[in-house]
Amino acid sequence: MQKRSLEFTVGIFMVMGIVALVLMAFRVSGLSVSDAGDTYTVKAHFENLGGLNDRAKVSMAGVTIGRVTNIYLDKDWYSAVVEMEINKDVDNLSIDTSAAILTAGLLGEKYIGLTVGAETDFLKDGDWIEDTQSAIVLEELIGRFLFNKAEEG
């Protein structure tokens, strides 16, 4: 009996460890089991990413509908290319959808906001979003402001 209760408590200890690991994986780090099967990829050129990262959110009307999966430089155009995965159930984005790099709050993380267009054809896997708007870089904004002031005065 003594032996059994000993093994039982050690077993409980092990189970607690596994439960903690599972909680860490799914509740704390937001690891999801969904595979690549239920997303499709679209690409977009941006002139300036201004601090957009891999795994940044892609949202529409404030709802997260996908994630940035890859960022690289297009050597022919010297512009940034962003690949993003969009959930398959959002399959009615028109081909003239526009993408903008936005900031959550004043100092928050960068994300991509999509705004739907008016066309009746929809974006498919591997399509390009043509209408993009770069991140607002604070230094450029201030520079432009000072330049305008100088012209006035």
């Binding site: 690991l21 860490m24 994986a25 509740r27 704390v28 780090s29 937001g30 690891l31 795994r55 959110k57 993380e109």
Partner: peptide
């Protein structure tokens, strides 16, 4: 609390 945590904690890099 939980949303920002999930956005910034990565399983491989942190856990």
């Amino acid at each position: 609390y939980w949303g920002n945590m999930q956005a910034s904690v990565t399983f491989y890099n942190d856990v």
